[in-house]
């Protein structure tokens, strides 16, 4: 049952992504309405899938890479709804739905067995720690999408060749502010995830920090975003530079997420 829900959600996201990409070339009110309905349908199915996995396993469904990736995408879509509702940024979907779809596709090819949680991880810390981590990561994913939008719009204005998307993309100021705001959301959550992780390690392993690869890479990611905020405030690194940094930062997020689990070993890696 939950597998079918997942497949259906994936299908909806796929269709939404196609519509999003079409929207770049031939947008109208109808296409964005279709896109939105598809994302909503996908999200409902996706939520049902996550909930049923939670019920079946009895713990937060972030116990293997399939679940974690799926939950990560879920957080991004949730944030996307929030931003659409609050700010109505033109074409945001076209830049974020492909990310969601690729994550979901990755999730779909990973083993989906519901794992028994090792006793080491059975704790309410699991919920708190992973929730913080994924909300932070979702904000960074959004900042990545907005950063790409900024670079495209910046290129148009700077080169003086106002391409097809110039009209549809929001202004540079909105994109830059949004990028900044998303990072200011993501950064505290990432910090909290690291702190709660350390506390959890202390309570279950007796030590705050073990230089596990995931911990190291999280710290690297944390430093990148700390740098983004620091140079923005002190050196005025806004606009293009901030956009590029947020793209680099998201690459670090992705590596922390997939690279560490697939390439390196540690107690964060899934069985």
């Amino acid at each position: 049952m939950e597998t079918i829900l997942f497949e259906l959600a994936l299908t909806c996201y796929f269709a939404a992504t196609i519509v999003c990409i079409l929207e770049l070339f031939k947008g109208s009110k109808t296409t964005s309405r279709i896109m939105f309905s598809l994302v909503i349908a996908g999200f409902v199915l996706h939520t049902a899938n996550i909930a049923s996995r939670y019920v079946l396993s009895g713990h937060m469904p972030t116990a293997n890479l399939h679940e974690a990736t799926s939950f990560f995408s879920w957080c991004i879509v949730l944030l996307f709804f929030f931003l659409e509702y609050r700010y109505r940024i033109g074409l945001l979907g076209s830049f974020i739905m492909p990310v969601v779809f690729i994550l979901m596709l990755t999730s779909s090819i990973l083993p989906r067995r519901i794992e028994n949680l090792s006793p080491l991880l059975q704790s309410s810390w699991l919920f708190i720690h992973t929730a913080f981590a994924f909300i932070g990561d979702a904000a960074f994913a959004m900042a990545f999408g907005v950063g790409i939008m900024y670079l495209i719009q910046e290129h148009y204005v700077k080169s003086k060749h106002l391409g097809d998307l110039f009209k549809k993309l929001p202004s540079l100021q909105i994109l830059d502010e949004m990028n900044y705001r998303l990072i200011t959301i993501g950064f505290p959550f990432l910090s909290l995830a690291i702190i709660t992780g350390a506390l959890w390690a202390q309570s279950s392993l007796g030590t705050f920090w073990r230089w596990d690869p995931k911990e190291v890479w999280s710290l690297i990611t944390w430093f990148i975003y700390a740098l983004v905020l620091h140079v923005r405030l002190t050196q005025g690194w806004r606009g293009k530079r901030a956009a590029i940094l947020s793209i680099i930062g998201f690459c670090a997020v992705l590596f922390t997420f997939f690279g560490v689990n697939l390439l390196l070993k540690g107690y964060h890696s899934f069985k």
């Binding site: 719009q153 110039f166 202004s171 540079l172 100021q173």
Partner: peptide
Amino acid sequence: AENAVSISFAAVELAKKIFT
């Protein structure tokens, strides 16, 4: 009817894409 077709309107349009 989209897109500015005079220089001064084009300037305003650009300003709006830079500053909202």
